[in-house]
Design a protein around this nucleic acid. Structure first.
Lengths: 252, 252
DNA sequence: GTGTTTATCGTCAGGCAGACGACTATGATC
DNA sequence: GATCATAGTCGTCTGCCTGACGATAAACAC
């Protein structure tokens, strides 16, 4: 059968972002307040339409830069490490997910170090870092509790999927370093794992594990006492991206 | 800003399928021959447009049924096990990936037991099971060698991603049973792992591992000698979906 | 019966993780 | 300045799991 433009229905395609960071020992996600219907006034994940000549990854990187000012960390040039990790998460296309029209959203997951303050088009009151349990409460994806209204659209589901991806991926990859500044200590990295998994890890076994995995951490020579206590060695993320054997997540 | 339909460009949305099975000790994928331009006459992954009122998973299940006659195995009703495993893989939206128009393809991964014969709209000559290395040759994703023309569009990339997903997922889940008939022996399951990973596994250690993991295998009581040699116990897949600790893929 | 094939059970050594003791080096407090 | 609290770092021990591999069992082919 020949090419027939009427043979398929038109879709709008968006990218939505699950941007995660660790602040004050808890895993937080970036949420923006919706300024227009539907779901006006409710919190949602940042995102927007994919433009005509734009790849999906480009669109996600553009939205991330617009919302946070973050550049995407390019795996090909790991020298300048001022960027975030960005990867595609999943695509959501329920016909009813947007009441206006048929929208397919390609969700992306971004991991960033702790940032000074969010900005949503320069308006700080319309963007915030919120603990993920708080955002997932009342959505069927978190524990019960009195909290804010659930996220707009199916964003609670998307956020839950993104959090689960991050939780499982730091097991077998060095991705947890994406939550850390360029130089960090073993203790800081351990607190990332503890925040993302909501568990307590043994500092001695953790230290043995991460320093004993070749290519995971590279000492920079410096030390710091910014966490108090005895000065700790500073490290950079090494070239290894896979953790084998993986870091084991304790039973809860 | 109010809702403005002209604010976003229209996209066509398709689902493409990576359907994998194990035949004659090698991992094979379903390929269909294109009957129309572009890439007319070339092999491609099965797929098609998402319909107006259709969810992405529904569209993928429909295409799978159209191409193979397989029903999707419903995790909620694991009693009738005549279906395949189906999951979303990733979404591909390069602006240049289809010369006709802007197409975003949501690729899905399906795992099926060995099937009698493929059918593509009843025309068997336009569908075949091909070893994945053969399909990935000449595409930069496989080893060198003289073979057929590379897959149409970016389907070699999609296939490579699907194969990699399957290879890694059988490590830590019971997904390998999706390649087996409803009742199978430990040896047949081991040959699935060997085909997917292209390695040889020790039969004794493999047997110890899978029979020692609670909930992975459930003995049915029957035995079979269809593989020759001493009769082997028959098993069904147990309720456990996660394999912890995982099956370790040997270094190559 | 002999050989071949596949399945299944056991044994042993090495590696890794969890539990936890001990020591070190800083800042805070009295 | 002594003491305390905090955090980092090095070791030890035990148990579990894996890889390597020997041995036995039960079918079929000849």
């Amino acid at each position: 059968m020949p090419y027939d433009p009427s043979a398929f229905p038109p879709f709008a395609v968006t990218v939505d972002l699950v941007v995660l960071t660790v602040r004050r020992h808890s895993l937080c996600a970036l949420a923006v307040r919706r300024g227009e219907p539907p779901f006006q006034g409710r919190w949602a994940l940042p995102g927007g339409f994919v433009r005509a000549g734009e790849d999906l990854a480009q669109a996600a990187a553009r939205e991330l830069a617009e919302e946070t000012g973050l550049c995407v960390h390019d795996p090909a040039a790991p020298t300048q490490d001022n960027g975030a990790h960005l990867e595609q998460l999943a695509t959501y296309g329920d016909p009813e997910r947007d009441p206006r029209m048929r929208v397919v959203s390609v969700a992306h997951l971004a991991l960033a170090p702790d940032l000074p303050a969010p900005r949503a088009g320069g308006d700080a009151s319309n963007a915030r870092w919120a603990p993920v349990e708080e955002l997932l409460e009342q959505s069927g994806y978190g524990h019960a509790g009195e909290a804010v209204a659930p996220l707009a659209f199916d964003h609670a589901r998307i956020l839950a999927d993104g959090v689960e991806r991050a939780r499982s991926k730091i097991e077998y990859s060095s991705l947890a370093t994406a939550f850390c500044p360029p130089e960090f200590t073993v203790g800081e990295l351990r607190r990332v794992y503890e925040a993302v998994w909501s568990v307590a890890l043994d500092p001695r076994n953790f230290h043995r594990k991460v320093t004993g995995t070749p290519g995971f951490l590279v000492p920079t020579g410096g030390t710091t006492t910014r966490q108090g206590g005895r000065p700790a060695q500073l490290f950079r993320a090494g070239g290894a991206t896979l953790l084998n054997p993986p870091m084991l997540r304790p039973e809860v």
